[in-house]
Nucleic acid binder design. Structure first.
Lengths: 235, 235
DNA sequence: CGTGGATTTGAGAGAAATCAAATCATGTGG
DNA sequence: CCACATGATTTGATTTCTCTCAAATCCACG
């Protein structure tokens, strides 16, 4: 099992930039501790200062903030291969991190990461990971700020399709996503009731199909059209 | 004048982490090219791959995305001391960067920054800068996603007050901000007309005062209350 | 002194929220 | 295997916030 984590981690690093064999050797010496966590489990909460980062090997998680009045906004969805709390290396958590499904995660001690930073290639790759996450966050601002509800949902679907395909987790563009309508609402900044209506619309128009938890994007062109999706920001 | 840029840059780096004298010496050898740019000038546009980063010495700028249909969303406001396009070192621009006022900026060649990365302290500090920017972006998602219009405006005012105070650009909590109502609209994801009404409300209730371009926050408690502002995310 | 951008005001339309209840799944314990 | 509890989804009715459109006013600047 530990080999799995190292393989995922090196794969991630390689996808982020130039990594040579010496770099890899050091990565392989990292002691990653595997862990399986149930669905709807809070991995980290605001203000936490964890001593490790989580590498998601399997499953979905999300970052969110909840206001005093109980309103929640989901900031991003995390898929396998990602390190959603990489920034915890530098600052305290400013949001929560929660599993959506059962997750297999690798806990990488901060010390180990700090040691890796001695290798400039790795330091650069990890910085780049933060930059890519930031770029996704910026697009979410546009999504909730300037798109109507239908377009918001369409946009997140296309983003996920794109990211999951890159991660090799989507076959022919359809993918599993065990998300409740209330979670959708908190992703999109709209109400649960309205999510329900938007989803119905998309299904009735045969733009998407939804059985169990798998989303099949039947009419990608239409989705792109309504959401003005442009994958540039995913670099 | 070049001394100004180096001073601002070293100050920024020191604020981001531990920087020693050797680090500083290398920073001082960087050739920063100063430039004064008029208001409403686009410094960078989407897809650009500039060969340098901009350090703002004076003035305000903003990052934004504009959709095909001409709707603009402002992603963040940039104040003196910041490097708004630091990520351009790693990826193409996924948004525009525009001056709000006349700006004095220092252009730092990418090559110079790449050379600086050999110093782990500096590499870490710059990574941290990206992390802090990302954390502000996340809070903007909450702002446009889950707060009503009055709260959105209040929240941005408090964030700016906080950041400007840290940067030594705000005396007794009031500050100059030459922003049009249409720019406000694009920050907050609401219409220009509505911005006008929200501003009027805040002024009539004596929560803020606004003369020329200076915002005086008369009732900070009230602003905090309506916007649920919590400066944690500014670290 | 005219011109164009920014702000202000009013009226009407529309998107989405809220509230409330019904229905549908799913899982548990008897 | 059924009764029941719990959470998710669906539906309908009403309200609220915000947008859009249009016009008036204000203001800075050449």
């Amino acid at each position: 099992m530990p080999g799995q984590f190292i393989a995922t981690l090196t794969h991630k690093l390689r996808s982020l930039g130039v990594i040579n064999d010496d770099d890899i050797r050091i990565v392989e010496s990292v002691a990653v501790k595997g862990k399986v966590i149930g669905a709807d489990c809070r991995l980290l909460k605001e203000n936490d200062k964890p001593g490790h980062c989580c590498l998601i090997l399997n499953g979905y998680a999300y970052s969110s903030k909840t206001s005093a009045s109980g309103e929640r906004q989901i900031l991003s969805l995390h898929i396998p291969g990602e390190i959603p709390d990489l920034h915890s290396l530098h600052v305290a958590m400013d949001h929560d991190l929660t599993t959506m499904t059962e997750c297999t995660v690798g806990l990488i001690p901060h010390d180990a990461i700090l040691a890796l930073l001695a290798r400039p290639n790795i330091a650069k790759a990890l910085w780049r990971e933060t930059i890519l996450q930031a770029s996704i966050s910026r697009e979410w601002i546009v999504n909730v700020g300037r798109r109507e509800s239908l377009a918001r949902l369409a946009h997140v679907l296309l983003e996920l399709r794109h990211r999951l395909t890159t991660a090799g987790r989507s076959k022919n563009g359809s993918f599993e996503l065990p998300i409740t309508q209330s979670e959708w609402a908190d992703c999109l900044g709209i109400s649960t009731v309205h999510v329900n209506r938007v989803l119905q619309h998309l299904r009735r128009q045969r733009i998407i199909a939804l059985e169990r938890n798998t989303y099949r994007l039947l009419d990608v062109c239409k989705l792109v059209e309504v959401s003005q999706f442009n994958p540039n920001y995913l670099h």
